[in-house]
Computed example of a mutant assay.
Amino acid sequence: MEYSRQVQVFGILVFELLSEALGLKSDYLESMDCAKGQQILSHYYRPCPQPQLTMGIKFEKLISNDIFKSVQHRVLANRHKSSRVSVECFFTLGLHPTTKVYGPVKELLSKDNSPVYRETSLKEFVTYYHNKGFDENSALSHFKLQHVAEIST
């Protein structure tokens, strides 16, 4: 429980820094409930004799209107002879019922910086994310506005 509390404190600090980096008041992202939900996962990886045969997996990008970039990553299979454990923490409202709609922060938009993504509810985003399956395409591309998709192709 103490670990979770400390991660929460750290997360609030990170959201304050991200808010300031966007030119917003330091409590902006926290006031949007970005630090409200927390999910801590841990994984146990046994040694894998053929790690090259395994596969791995991949809302800041949406609300920052592509100012912040999400890192695509995957977990590599354990090549070592001993087991390893990883612990991840995600700030997510996915487990909290909310009817809030999220989209690019209005204060970041202008004539020269039009929205890249449409607004969406957390429920719609999470449902799409879980139903799309794992591939190399980001779930976020589904929420890109049409005029932006046409320009980039």
Score class of each variant (00 low, 15 high):
Asn78Lys: 07
Ile12Thr: 13
Val7Ser: 03
Ile63Pro: 01
Ile57Asp: 07
Gln6Leu: 12
Gln38Asp: 02
Lys132Ile: 00
Ser64Val: 10
Phe68Tyr: 15
Gln39Pro: 00
Glu107Phe: 02
His73Ser: 08
Glu124Pro: 04
Phe134Pro: 00
Asp27Lys: 15
Tyr28Pro: 00
Leu122Ala: 03
Arg74Asn: 08
Thr54Tyr: 00
Leu24His: 08
Arg46Asn: 13
Ser19Ile: 11
Ala21Ile: 06
Arg118Glu: 11
Pro115Cys: 11
Glu20Met: 07
Lys144Asn: 03
Glu124Trp: 07
His130Trp: 00
Tyr128Ser: 02
Val148Asp: 04
Lys123Met: 07
Ser141Ala: 03
Ala149Tyr: 03
Val85Pro: 01
Val71Pro: 06
Asn65Ser: 05
His130Phe: 02
Phe90Lys: 10
Pro47Gly: 03
His130Lys: 10
Phe68Asp: 06
Ser26Phe: 04
Leu29Ser: 08
Val126Asp: 08
Arg46Trp: 00
Leu18Thr: 04
Val87Arg: 04
Gly103Lys: 07
Ser138Gly: 01
Leu22Gly: 05
Leu17Val: 10
Leu13Gly: 12
Gln146Val: 09
Ser31Gly: 07
Gln52Trp: 04
Gly133Gln: 01
Lys100Gln: 14
Ser121Gln: 08
Thr92Trp: 00
Lys81Asn: 12
Thr153Trp: 05
Phe15Asp: 06
Arg5Lys: 15
Ser19Pro: 12
Pro115Arg: 09
Ser152Ile: 11
Glu107Val: 09
Thr54Ile: 04
Ile63Ala: 02
Leu95His: 15
Glu60Ala: 06
Asn137Trp: 01
Ser4Asp: 03
Asp112Lys: 13
Pro47Ala: 05
Ser114Gln: 14
Ser4Arg: 12
Ile63Asn: 06
His130Asn: 13
Pro97Gly: 04
Ile57Trp: 11
Ile151Pro: 00
Pro104Met: 11
Asn78Thr: 08
Ser82Met: 09
Val116Ser: 10
Tyr117Lys: 10
Tyr44Arg: 10
Ser138Asp: 01
Glu60Asp: 07
Leu76Ala: 14
Tyr117Ala: 06
Gln39Ile: 04
His73Gln: 04
Arg118Asp: 09
Ile12Ala: 07
Lys61Cys: 12
His43Ser: 06
Val9Asn: 12
Val101Ser: 13
Met32Ser: 12
Arg5Ile: 06
